[in-house]
Every structure is written in C-alpha cells, then in structure tokens.
Amino acid sequence: MAEPEKLFQIKIVTPNGLIYSHRGSSVSMRAVDGDRQILYNHMPILTPLAIGEIRVKRGAEMDHKVDYIAVSGGIIAFADNVATIIADNAERARNIDLTRAEAAKQRAEAHIKEAKEKHDQQSLQRAELALQRAVTRIRVYDALHHK
C-alpha cells in the first residue's frame, strides 16, 4: 500500500491580510541567497526573500496543481510543518492584471533611462526595484496562463 502524501500548511500574509492559505507538498521560492524548496518535515528555517515568485505544489489531492504567487520580498518562517511567508506585497497569479503589470514595466524602464541620463543613483535603484516587481508579476501571470 502506498504511503499517504505528506502535506503541510502554507500561508502568505501581507499588511492587507491573508493572501494565501492551503496545504501543499512543497513550496519553492527565491531567498536573498538563492533558490529554496521546503518539503514536509523540513528543518525549522527563517530566511529573507528576494523579489520573486512562490510556487506551491498542492499534492495528489489537487492533481499536483501548482499555485503561483508574486512577492516583493519578505521573509519565510518554517517550523512544525507550517510555512508562513510575510511580505509587503503578494499577488496570486489569477489576480494579476497583465495590462497593469506591463504598463508598470514600461514606466519603470522609462524611469531607469531618465535616472541614468541624470546620474540619479537613488532614482535608478527605485526604478530597478519597480522593474523587478513588474517583471515578476508578468512572469507569474505567464506561468499560470501558458503552461
């Protein structure tokens, strides 16, 4: 007899409240020091996250469905088979407005060009972060809609 699949709780919280809460077989993300994946019974961990996508594999009960969530940094804490991600902003792929994300990308690219022309390092850094967030949202949207 096959062993039952080991699932754990995954929650994503922002200042606006709970964005995501499901059980999954794995959660993958980009930490500031590289890619990470957490599985059932992983050792406790607390690590900062980079701007990027969170991928949650939901398990056999959901035909191994993968949920995609864009986050703009934050932290992940994992202990006792509960993964909690706290982020300033998080957006599920199904909620991303692609037109708005593409417009944000174009604005950020224009701000980067302008900041470079003015040699404004602070504005350049802000625009580069805005570009990363917009590109991440587009990539997360594409992951859901173009499998």
Rank of each mutant, 00 (worst) to 15 (best):
E3A: 10
P4K: 00
P4N: 04
E5F: 03
L7Y: 00
Q9N: 15
I10H: 07
K11N: 15
I12P: 09
V13K: 10
V13P: 11
V13N: 11
T14R: 04
P15E: 01
N16R: 14
G17Y: 11
G17I: 11
G17K: 11
L18H: 14
L18I: 13
I19M: 08
I19G: 02
H22F: 14
H22D: 15
H22A: 15
G24H: 03
G24V: 01
V27P: 09
V27Q: 00
S28A: 14
M29P: 08
M29Y: 09
R30F: 01
A31W: 09
D33N: 04
G34R: 07
G34S: 13
G34P: 12
G34M: 12
R36T: 09
Q37N: 05
Q37H: 04
I38P: 05
L39C: 05
M43L: 15
P44F: 02
I45L: 02
L46I: 08
P48Q: 11
L49Y: 03
A50L: 00
A50V: 03
G52N: 14
E53K: 06
R55P: 09
V56K: 05
R58E: 15
G59L: 01
A60E: 02
M62Y: 14
M62D: 13
H64Q: 13
H64F: 13
K65F: 15
K65T: 07
V66G: 15
D67C: 03
Y68D: 05
Y68P: 10
V71D: 06
S72Y: 01
G73S: 09
G74E: 05
A77K: 14
A79W: 06
D80P: 09
A87T: 07
D88G: 10
A90Q: 10
E91V: 15
R92T: 02
A93C: 11
N95D: 12
R100H: 13
A101R: 01
A103Q: 04
A104K: 01
K105A: 03
R107Y: 07
A108N: 04
E109G: 00
A110I: 11
I112W: 06
K113Y: 10
E114F: 00
K116Q: 05
E117Q: 13
E117R: 07
K118T: 03
K118N: 12
H119C: 06
D120L: 07
D120M: 02
Q121C: 10
S123D: 03
S123E: 05
L124V: 07
Q125R: 13
Q125G: 09
R126K: 00
R126D: 11
R126P: 07
E128T: 01
L129K: 11
Q132K: 03
V135D: 11
I138M: 03
I138G: 00
R139Q: 04
R139L: 08
V140Y: 08
V140F: 08
Y141A: 05
D142W: 10
D142G: 05
A143N: 10
L144T: 03
H145I: 01
H146L: 10
